[in-house]
Design a protein around this nucleic acid. Structure first.
Lengths: 224, 224
DNA sequence: CGGACGCTACGGCCGCCGCCGAACCGTCCG
DNA sequence: CGGACGGTTCGGCGGCGGCCGTAGCGTCCG
Protein backbone atom coordinates (compact mmCIF):
# COMPACT_ATOMS: atom_id res chain seq x y z
CA UNK A 1 0.00 0.00 0.00
CA UNK A 2 1.44 3.35 -0.98
CA UNK A 3 1.89 6.30 1.28
CA UNK A 4 -1.08 8.06 -0.21
CA UNK A 5 -3.31 5.05 0.06
CA UNK A 6 -2.43 4.70 3.70
CA UNK A 7 -3.06 8.37 4.26
CA UNK A 8 -6.46 7.99 2.62
CA UNK A 9 -7.20 5.00 4.82
CA UNK A 10 -6.46 6.99 7.95
CA UNK A 11 -8.50 9.91 6.69
CA UNK A 12 -11.38 7.59 5.87
CA UNK A 13 -11.37 6.46 9.48
CA UNK A 14 -11.85 10.06 10.58
CA UNK A 15 -14.41 10.53 7.85
CA UNK A 16 -17.20 8.71 9.61
CA UNK A 17 -19.16 10.89 12.04
CA UNK A 18 -19.38 8.21 14.69
CA UNK A 19 -15.65 7.59 14.66
CA UNK A 20 -14.99 11.31 14.55
CA UNK A 21 -17.05 11.71 17.71
CA UNK A 22 -15.16 8.89 19.36
CA UNK A 23 -11.82 10.46 18.57
CA UNK A 24 -12.77 13.95 19.62
CA UNK A 25 -14.18 12.58 22.84
CA UNK A 26 -10.68 11.32 23.60
CA UNK A 27 -8.98 14.49 22.47
CA UNK A 28 -8.21 15.71 25.94
CA UNK A 29 -6.14 12.65 26.69
CA UNK A 30 -8.57 10.86 28.95
CA UNK A 31 -9.12 7.15 28.59
CA UNK A 32 -12.76 6.10 28.23
CA UNK A 33 -14.56 2.77 28.19
CA UNK A 34 -16.23 1.34 25.13
CA UNK A 35 -19.65 2.08 26.52
CA UNK A 36 -18.88 5.69 27.26
CA UNK A 37 -17.60 6.02 23.74
CA UNK A 38 -20.75 4.43 22.37
CA UNK A 39 -22.70 7.13 24.12
CA UNK A 40 -20.40 9.82 22.78
CA UNK A 41 -20.61 8.40 19.28
CA UNK A 42 -24.43 8.19 19.33
CA UNK A 43 -24.44 4.65 18.10
CA UNK A 44 -25.02 1.25 19.67
CA UNK A 45 -22.32 -0.57 21.61
CA UNK A 46 -22.03 -3.21 18.89
CA UNK A 47 -21.37 -0.64 16.24
CA UNK A 48 -18.96 1.14 18.52
CA UNK A 49 -17.09 -2.05 19.14
CA UNK A 50 -16.49 -2.41 15.45
CA UNK A 51 -15.30 1.17 15.13
CA UNK A 52 -12.97 0.79 18.07
CA UNK A 53 -11.47 -2.35 16.61
CA UNK A 54 -10.73 -0.56 13.36
CA UNK A 55 -9.29 2.49 15.08
CA UNK A 56 -7.11 0.33 17.28
CA UNK A 57 -5.99 -1.72 14.29
CA UNK A 58 -4.86 1.45 12.60
CA UNK A 59 -3.08 2.40 15.81
CA UNK A 60 -5.04 5.61 16.18
CA UNK A 61 -6.21 4.33 19.54
CA UNK A 62 -4.52 2.37 22.26
CA UNK A 63 -6.43 0.07 24.52
CA UNK A 64 -5.90 -1.19 28.06
CA UNK A 65 -7.91 -3.92 29.68
CA UNK A 66 -8.93 -3.54 33.27
CA UNK A 67 -11.22 -6.22 34.58
CA UNK A 68 -14.23 -6.34 32.36
CA UNK A 69 -13.64 -2.84 31.10
CA UNK A 70 -11.54 -1.77 28.20
CA UNK A 71 -10.15 1.71 28.29
CA UNK A 72 -9.37 3.49 25.06
CA UNK A 73 -7.18 6.53 24.56
CA UNK A 74 -5.47 8.25 21.65
CA UNK A 75 -2.40 6.25 20.67
CA UNK A 76 -0.19 9.30 20.39
CA UNK A 77 -0.21 13.08 20.51
CA UNK A 78 0.23 12.97 16.75
CA UNK A 79 -3.33 11.77 16.49
CA UNK A 80 -4.55 14.73 18.47
CA UNK A 81 -2.56 17.11 16.34
CA UNK A 82 -4.04 15.56 13.27
CA UNK A 83 -7.57 16.04 14.60
CA UNK A 84 -6.88 19.65 15.45
CA UNK A 85 -5.44 20.31 12.03
CA UNK A 86 -8.45 18.82 10.31
CA UNK A 87 -10.73 20.90 12.50
CA UNK A 88 -8.73 23.96 11.60
CA UNK A 89 -9.44 23.31 7.95
CA UNK A 90 -13.06 22.42 8.58
CA UNK A 91 -13.20 25.80 10.18
CA UNK A 92 -15.76 27.40 12.42
CA UNK A 93 -19.46 27.19 11.84
CA UNK A 94 -20.18 29.40 8.87
CA UNK A 95 -22.11 32.40 10.14
CA UNK A 96 -25.73 31.46 10.20
CA UNK A 97 -28.90 33.16 11.22
CA UNK A 98 -29.68 32.50 14.82
CA UNK A 99 -27.18 31.36 17.36
CA UNK A 100 -26.01 27.88 17.77
CA UNK A 101 -26.17 26.06 21.01
CA UNK A 102 -24.48 22.70 21.06
CA UNK A 103 -20.86 23.66 21.40
CA UNK A 104 -21.16 27.09 22.89
CA UNK A 105 -19.48 26.04 26.12
CA UNK A 106 -16.73 24.39 24.13
CA UNK A 107 -16.19 27.53 22.10
CA UNK A 108 -15.96 29.67 25.19
CA UNK A 109 -13.29 27.75 26.98
CA UNK A 110 -11.91 24.25 26.70
CA UNK A 111 -8.75 22.31 27.22
CA UNK A 112 -6.53 21.37 24.32
CA UNK A 113 -4.46 18.61 25.91
CA UNK A 114 -3.08 20.49 28.89
CA UNK A 115 -3.54 24.10 27.92
CA UNK A 116 -6.47 26.43 27.36
CA UNK A 117 -8.26 26.98 24.08
CA UNK A 118 -11.46 28.57 22.86
CA UNK A 119 -12.32 32.23 23.36
CA UNK A 120 -10.61 32.20 26.74
CA UNK A 121 -7.42 30.68 25.40
CA UNK A 122 -7.26 33.13 22.54
CA UNK A 123 -8.07 36.09 24.77
CA UNK A 124 -5.29 35.04 27.11
CA UNK A 125 -2.87 34.90 24.23
CA UNK A 126 -4.03 38.29 22.99
CA UNK A 127 -3.67 39.82 26.42
CA UNK A 128 -0.14 38.53 26.92
CA UNK A 129 0.74 39.61 23.43
CA UNK A 130 -0.67 43.10 23.90
CA UNK A 131 1.27 43.48 27.14
CA UNK A 132 4.46 42.55 25.33
CA UNK A 133 4.90 39.37 27.33
CA UNK A 134 4.90 37.03 24.36
CA UNK A 135 5.29 37.16 20.61
CA UNK A 136 3.25 34.81 18.51
CA UNK A 137 3.61 34.19 14.81
CA UNK A 138 1.53 31.71 12.88
CA UNK A 139 3.80 28.86 13.82
CA UNK A 140 6.30 29.90 16.42
CA UNK A 141 6.29 31.77 19.70
CA UNK A 142 8.57 33.35 22.25
CA UNK A 143 8.31 34.71 25.77
CA UNK A 144 9.93 38.08 26.42
CA UNK A 145 11.88 39.06 29.51
CA UNK A 146 8.91 40.88 30.95
CA UNK A 147 6.84 37.81 30.15
CA UNK A 148 9.05 35.59 32.28
CA UNK A 149 8.71 38.01 35.17
CA UNK A 150 4.98 38.19 34.71
CA UNK A 151 4.57 34.43 34.66
CA UNK A 152 6.67 33.97 37.78
CA UNK A 153 4.69 36.67 39.48
CA UNK A 154 1.44 35.01 38.44
CA UNK A 155 2.63 31.70 39.83
CA UNK A 156 2.77 30.08 36.44
CA UNK A 157 6.46 29.69 36.00
CA UNK A 158 6.88 26.95 33.45
CA UNK A 159 8.76 23.96 34.82
CA UNK A 160 11.94 22.97 33.02
CA UNK A 161 11.44 20.10 30.65
CA UNK A 162 11.99 18.63 27.28
CA UNK A 163 8.83 20.00 25.69
CA UNK A 164 8.94 23.15 23.68
CA UNK A 165 8.67 26.24 25.79
CA UNK A 166 6.08 28.38 24.08
CA UNK A 167 4.24 27.52 20.95
CA UNK A 168 1.14 28.88 19.29
CA UNK A 169 -1.58 26.34 18.63
CA UNK A 170 -4.16 27.23 16.05
CA UNK A 171 -7.55 27.39 17.68
CA UNK A 172 -10.05 25.60 15.47
CA UNK A 173 -13.07 27.52 16.69
CA UNK A 174 -11.48 30.96 16.72
CA UNK A 175 -9.02 30.37 13.89
CA UNK A 176 -6.44 32.32 15.84
CA UNK A 177 -3.56 31.10 17.93
CA UNK A 178 -3.61 30.37 21.62
CA UNK A 179 -0.62 29.45 23.73
CA UNK A 180 0.60 25.89 24.01
CA UNK A 181 3.84 24.34 25.16
CA UNK A 182 5.17 24.44 28.71
CA UNK A 183 3.99 28.02 29.08
CA UNK A 184 0.45 27.17 28.02
CA UNK A 185 0.35 24.19 30.33
CA UNK A 186 1.63 26.23 33.27
CA UNK A 187 -0.99 28.91 32.70
CA UNK A 188 -3.79 26.37 32.59
CA UNK A 189 -2.54 24.62 35.70
CA UNK A 190 -2.27 27.87 37.59
CA UNK A 191 -5.78 28.95 36.60
CA UNK A 192 -7.11 25.64 37.88
CA UNK A 193 -5.13 26.06 41.12
CA UNK A 194 -6.58 29.50 41.62
CA UNK A 195 -10.06 28.12 41.07
CA UNK A 196 -10.60 30.46 38.17
CA UNK A 197 -11.71 27.63 35.94
CA UNK A 198 -13.11 24.17 36.56
CA UNK A 199 -13.14 21.12 34.39
CA UNK A 200 -16.49 19.75 33.33
CA UNK A 201 -17.32 16.12 33.55
CA UNK A 202 -17.30 14.28 30.25
CA UNK A 203 -16.24 17.26 28.24
CA UNK A 204 -13.23 19.23 27.30
CA UNK A 205 -15.16 22.37 28.10
CA UNK A 206 -14.14 24.26 31.21
CA UNK A 207 -16.32 26.67 33.13
CA UNK A 208 -15.11 30.04 34.27
CA UNK A 209 -15.90 30.51 37.93
CA UNK A 210 -16.93 33.76 39.60
CA UNK A 211 -13.37 34.14 40.88
CA UNK A 212 -12.23 33.54 37.36
CA UNK A 213 -14.49 36.23 35.95
CA UNK A 214 -12.94 38.83 38.19
CA UNK A 215 -9.48 37.36 38.12
CA UNK A 216 -9.24 37.25 34.34
CA UNK A 217 -10.66 40.76 34.17
CA UNK A 218 -8.25 42.25 36.70
CA UNK A 219 -5.13 40.44 35.74
CA UNK A 220 -5.58 40.08 32.00
CA UNK A 221 -8.31 42.55 31.12
CA UNK A 222 -10.43 39.73 29.78
CA UNK A 223 -14.23 39.83 29.88
CA UNK A 224 -16.07 37.09 28.04
CA UNK B 1 -23.97 20.81 11.09
CA UNK B 2 -21.81 20.49 14.18
CA UNK B 3 -18.08 21.02 14.35
CA UNK B 4 -17.42 17.33 14.51
CA UNK B 5 -19.68 16.55 11.60
CA UNK B 6 -17.90 19.13 9.52
CA UNK B 7 -14.56 17.74 10.54
CA UNK B 8 -15.74 14.29 9.51
CA UNK B 9 -16.91 15.69 6.19
CA UNK B 10 -13.51 17.15 5.50
CA UNK B 11 -11.80 13.96 6.54
CA UNK B 12 -14.12 11.95 4.34
CA UNK B 13 -12.97 14.05 1.41
CA UNK B 14 -9.38 13.02 2.13
CA UNK B 15 -10.53 9.48 2.69
CA UNK B 16 -10.96 8.61 -0.95
CA UNK B 17 -7.76 7.49 -2.66
CA UNK B 18 -8.44 9.42 -5.84
CA UNK B 19 -9.03 12.65 -3.94
CA UNK B 20 -6.05 11.97 -1.73
CA UNK B 21 -3.90 11.65 -4.82
CA UNK B 22 -5.28 14.91 -6.18
CA UNK B 23 -4.51 16.76 -2.99
CA UNK B 24 -1.03 15.38 -2.57
CA UNK B 25 -0.27 16.22 -6.19
CA UNK B 26 -0.96 19.83 -5.27
CA UNK B 27 0.99 19.69 -2.04
CA UNK B 28 3.95 21.61 -3.34
CA UNK B 29 1.84 24.63 -4.10
CA UNK B 30 1.69 24.27 -7.87
CA UNK B 31 -1.56 24.82 -9.71
CA UNK B 32 -2.57 22.02 -12.05
CA UNK B 33 -5.32 21.59 -14.61
CA UNK B 34 -8.21 19.20 -14.22
CA UNK B 35 -6.75 16.86 -16.77
CA UNK B 36 -3.36 16.69 -15.13
CA UNK B 37 -5.10 15.93 -11.88
CA UNK B 38 -7.15 13.21 -13.53
CA UNK B 39 -3.89 11.60 -14.55
CA UNK B 40 -2.49 11.97 -11.06
CA UNK B 41 -5.65 10.57 -9.52
CA UNK B 42 -5.73 7.53 -11.84
CA UNK B 43 -9.37 8.07 -12.73
CA UNK B 44 -11.23 9.46 -15.71
CA UNK B 45 -11.62 13.20 -16.27
CA UNK B 46 -15.36 12.99 -15.57
CA UNK B 47 -14.79 11.40 -12.22
CA UNK B 48 -12.05 13.87 -11.47
CA UNK B 49 -14.34 16.74 -12.33
CA UNK B 50 -16.77 15.58 -9.70
CA UNK B 51 -14.04 15.23 -7.11
CA UNK B 52 -12.68 18.66 -7.91
CA UNK B 53 -16.12 20.19 -7.54
CA UNK B 54 -16.52 18.67 -4.11
CA UNK B 55 -13.07 19.69 -2.99
CA UNK B 56 -13.62 23.22 -4.22
CA UNK B 57 -17.04 23.35 -2.56
CA UNK B 58 -15.42 22.46 0.72
CA UNK B 59 -12.83 25.16 0.05
CA UNK B 60 -9.98 22.71 0.21
CA UNK B 61 -9.08 23.76 -3.30
CA UNK B 62 -9.16 27.08 -5.07
CA UNK B 63 -9.74 27.33 -8.76
CA UNK B 64 -8.78 29.86 -11.39
CA UNK B 65 -10.08 29.87 -14.92
CA UNK B 66 -7.70 30.63 -17.73
CA UNK B 67 -9.16 30.25 -21.16
CA UNK B 68 -10.49 26.75 -21.47
CA UNK B 69 -8.31 25.51 -18.68
CA UNK B 70 -9.08 25.49 -15.01
CA UNK B 71 -6.18 25.56 -12.65
CA UNK B 72 -6.59 24.11 -9.20
CA UNK B 73 -4.40 24.67 -6.17
CA UNK B 74 -4.67 24.13 -2.44
CA UNK B 75 -6.92 26.80 -0.99
CA UNK B 76 -4.62 27.54 1.94
CA UNK B 77 -1.46 26.39 3.67
CA UNK B 78 -3.72 24.97 6.35
CA UNK B 79 -4.78 22.31 3.90
CA UNK B 80 -1.18 21.34 3.29
CA UNK B 81 -0.50 21.20 7.00
CA UNK B 82 -3.51 18.98 7.44
CA UNK B 83 -2.28 16.59 4.78
CA UNK B 84 1.16 16.43 6.34
CA UNK B 85 -0.30 15.75 9.75
CA UNK B 86 -2.44 12.92 8.44
CA UNK B 87 0.58 11.47 6.67
CA UNK B 88 2.53 11.72 9.90
CA UNK B 89 -0.09 9.57 11.60
CA UNK B 90 -0.39 7.20 8.67
CA UNK B 91 3.32 6.79 9.15
CA UNK B 92 6.00 5.38 6.92
CA UNK B 93 5.68 2.17 5.04
CA UNK B 94 5.76 -0.58 7.63
CA UNK B 95 9.05 -2.43 7.20
CA UNK B 96 8.52 -5.01 4.56
CA UNK B 97 10.69 -7.59 2.89
CA UNK B 98 12.25 -6.21 -0.23
CA UNK B 99 12.65 -2.59 -0.99
CA UNK B 100 9.96 -0.36 -2.27
CA UNK B 101 10.38 1.64 -5.36
CA UNK B 102 7.61 4.04 -6.06
CA UNK B 103 8.43 6.85 -3.71
CA UNK B 104 12.10 6.33 -3.17
CA UNK B 105 13.01 9.60 -4.83
CA UNK B 106 10.39 11.36 -2.77
CA UNK B 107 11.79 9.88 0.41
CA UNK B 108 15.31 10.94 -0.41
CA UNK B 109 14.64 14.61 -1.02
CA UNK B 110 11.56 16.63 -1.77
CA UNK B 111 10.13 20.05 -1.25
CA UNK B 112 7.59 20.74 1.45
CA UNK B 113 6.17 24.03 0.21
CA UNK B 114 9.33 26.07 0.01
CA UNK B 115 11.74 24.12 2.15
CA UNK B 116 13.46 20.76 1.98
CA UNK B 117 12.12 17.50 3.37
CA UNK B 118 12.87 13.82 3.13
CA UNK B 119 16.16 12.29 4.12
CA UNK B 120 18.02 15.33 2.88
CA UNK B 121 15.86 17.76 4.82
CA UNK B 122 16.19 15.74 8.00
CA UNK B 123 19.94 15.31 7.53
CA UNK B 124 20.30 19.04 7.08
CA UNK B 125 18.42 19.66 10.30
CA UNK B 126 20.52 17.08 12.10
CA UNK B 127 23.73 18.61 10.83
CA UNK B 128 22.79 22.12 11.89
CA UNK B 129 21.64 20.82 15.22
CA UNK B 130 24.83 18.86 15.82
CA UNK B 131 26.89 21.92 14.99
CA UNK B 132 24.95 23.91 17.54
CA UNK B 133 23.49 26.20 14.91
CA UNK B 134 19.86 25.46 15.69
CA UNK B 135 17.81 23.90 18.44
CA UNK B 136 14.77 21.88 17.47
CA UNK B 137 12.13 20.57 19.80
CA UNK B 138 9.08 18.65 18.67
CA UNK B 139 7.18 21.81 18.01
CA UNK B 140 9.44 24.85 18.18
CA UNK B 141 12.85 25.86 16.94
CA UNK B 142 15.49 28.52 17.36
CA UNK B 143 18.62 29.63 15.58
CA UNK B 144 21.67 30.26 17.74
CA UNK B 145 24.15 33.09 17.33
CA UNK B 146 26.60 30.81 15.58
CA UNK B 147 23.74 29.65 13.41
CA UNK B 148 23.05 33.17 12.18
CA UNK B 149 26.70 33.59 11.31
CA UNK B 150 26.76 30.25 9.55
CA UNK B 151 23.67 31.02 7.49
CA UNK B 152 24.99 34.41 6.43
CA UNK B 153 28.28 32.81 5.52
CA UNK B 154 26.49 30.14 3.51
CA UNK B 155 24.53 32.77 1.65
CA UNK B 156 21.23 31.71 3.14
CA UNK B 157 20.49 34.65 5.34
CA UNK B 158 16.74 34.53 5.91
CA UNK B 159 15.01 37.64 4.61
CA UNK B 160 13.04 39.64 7.13
CA UNK B 161 9.36 38.90 6.98
CA UNK B 162 6.17 38.15 8.75
CA UNK B 163 6.55 34.40 8.64
CA UNK B 164 7.98 32.57 11.58
CA UNK B 165 11.72 32.43 11.61
CA UNK B 166 12.57 28.86 12.30
CA UNK B 167 10.19 26.04 12.85
CA UNK B 168 10.47 22.28 12.85
CA UNK B 169 8.14 20.51 10.47
CA UNK B 170 7.51 16.85 11.10
CA UNK B 171 8.71 14.84 8.18
CA UNK B 172 6.12 12.23 7.30
CA UNK B 173 8.52 9.78 5.71
CA UNK B 174 11.28 10.08 8.30
CA UNK B 175 9.06 10.85 11.29
CA UNK B 176 11.64 13.35 12.45
CA UNK B 177 11.70 17.11 12.12
CA UNK B 178 13.22 19.11 9.33
CA UNK B 179 13.56 22.87 9.21
CA UNK B 180 10.76 25.08 7.96
CA UNK B 181 10.01 28.76 8.31
CA UNK B 182 12.05 31.55 6.78
CA UNK B 183 15.26 29.71 7.65
CA UNK B 184 14.12 26.54 5.89
CA UNK B 185 13.02 28.49 2.85
CA UNK B 186 16.31 30.38 2.66
CA UNK B 187 18.29 27.15 2.87
CA UNK B 188 16.31 25.57 0.07
CA UNK B 189 16.59 28.65 -2.11
CA UNK B 190 20.32 28.82 -1.59
CA UNK B 191 20.80 25.14 -2.41
CA UNK B 192 18.91 25.67 -5.66
CA UNK B 193 21.02 28.75 -6.42
CA UNK B 194 24.17 26.77 -5.87
CA UNK B 195 22.90 24.07 -8.20
CA UNK B 196 23.16 21.50 -5.44
CA UNK B 197 19.63 20.34 -6.04
CA UNK B 198 17.23 20.52 -8.97
CA UNK B 199 13.48 20.35 -9.06
CA UNK B 200 11.92 17.49 -10.95
CA UNK B 201 9.10 18.00 -13.38
CA UNK B 202 5.68 16.99 -12.11
CA UNK B 203 6.93 15.94 -8.72
CA UNK B 204 7.86 17.34 -5.38
CA UNK B 205 10.97 15.23 -5.48
CA UNK B 206 14.26 17.02 -6.00
CA UNK B 207 17.44 15.46 -7.31
CA UNK B 208 20.78 16.01 -5.70
CA UNK B 209 23.32 17.04 -8.33
CA UNK B 210 26.97 16.04 -8.38
CA UNK B 211 27.85 19.48 -7.00
CA UNK B 212 25.26 18.85 -4.33
CA UNK B 213 26.78 15.52 -3.38
CA UNK B 214 30.14 17.09 -2.69
CA UNK B 215 28.69 20.35 -1.37
CA UNK B 216 26.43 18.73 1.20
CA UNK B 217 29.27 16.42 2.21
CA UNK B 218 31.85 19.18 2.69
CA UNK B 219 29.66 21.81 4.19
CA UNK B 220 27.27 19.71 6.20
CA UNK B 221 28.88 16.31 6.43
CA UNK B 222 25.92 14.74 4.70
CA UNK B 223 26.22 11.67 2.50
CA UNK B 224 23.03 10.04 1.28
C1' DC C 1 -17.47 28.10 -39.47
C1' DG C 2 -16.34 23.46 -38.12
C1' DG C 3 -13.69 20.50 -35.63
C1' DA C 4 -10.65 19.54 -31.71
C1' DC C 5 -10.21 20.05 -26.97
C1' DG C 6 -11.01 20.94 -21.86
C1' DC C 7 -14.31 20.39 -18.81
C1' DT C 8 -18.90 19.41 -16.80
C1' DA C 9 -23.74 17.23 -16.13
C1' DC C 10 -26.60 13.18 -16.03
C1' DG C 11 -27.82 8.35 -15.43
C1' DG C 12 -27.13 3.80 -14.06
C1' DC C 13 -24.37 0.14 -12.11
C1' DC C 14 -22.11 -1.89 -8.29
C1' DG C 15 -19.58 -2.49 -4.20
C1' DC C 16 -18.55 -0.96 0.26
C1' DC C 17 -19.70 0.10 4.81
C1' DG C 18 -22.38 1.79 8.65
C1' DC C 19 -26.10 0.24 11.31
C1' DC C 20 -28.72 -2.70 14.40
C1' DG C 21 -30.78 -7.25 16.50
C1' DA C 22 -29.63 -11.46 18.29
C1' DA C 23 -26.54 -14.39 20.22
C1' DC C 24 -22.21 -15.39 22.55
C1' DC C 25 -17.95 -14.89 25.84
C1' DG C 26 -15.78 -13.15 30.08
C1' DT C 27 -15.99 -10.72 34.53
C1' DC C 28 -18.02 -9.20 38.71
C1' DC C 29 -21.15 -9.84 42.63
C1' DG C 30 -24.79 -11.37 45.72
C1' DC D 1 -24.31 -20.67 41.09
C1' DG D 2 -27.22 -17.49 38.66
C1' DG D 3 -28.01 -13.06 37.17
C1' DA D 4 -26.32 -8.57 35.73
C1' DC D 5 -23.18 -6.24 32.99
C1' DG D 6 -19.39 -4.96 29.65
C1' DG D 7 -17.91 -6.15 25.40
C1' DT D 8 -17.62 -8.71 20.97
C1' DT D 9 -19.15 -11.48 16.83
C1' DC D 10 -22.24 -12.55 13.18
C1' DG D 11 -25.69 -11.88 9.73
C1' DG D 12 -28.59 -9.19 7.00
C1' DC D 13 -30.44 -4.82 5.51
C1' DG D 14 -30.16 -0.35 3.37
C1' DG D 15 -28.05 3.64 1.54
C1' DC D 16 -24.32 6.33 0.17
C1' DG D 17 -20.94 7.21 -3.15
C1' DG D 18 -17.29 6.12 -6.56
C1' DC D 19 -16.95 4.88 -11.21
C1' DC D 20 -17.65 5.25 -16.13
C1' DG D 21 -20.33 6.09 -20.78
C1' DT D 22 -22.80 9.28 -23.04
C1' DA D 23 -23.98 13.73 -24.01
C1' DG D 24 -23.65 18.71 -23.65
C1' DC D 25 -21.36 23.41 -23.05
C1' DG D 26 -17.70 26.75 -23.69
C1' DT D 27 -13.10 27.91 -25.74
C1' DC D 28 -9.43 27.86 -28.99
C1' DC D 29 -7.65 27.57 -33.71
C1' DG D 30 -7.12 26.62 -38.63
Amino acid sequence: MSDITRMAAVAALLGDPARARILTALLDGRALTAKELAFAAHVSPQTTSGHLARLTDATLLACEKQGRHRYFRLASPLVGQMLESVMAVAGPEPPRTGSWRGGEALRTARTCYDHLAGRLGVALADSLHAAGHVTLAADGGEVTGSGLVFLRDFGAEPPPGKRVFCRPCLDWSERRPHIAGRVGAALATRCLELGWIARQRDSRAVTITAEGQSGFAERFGIRL
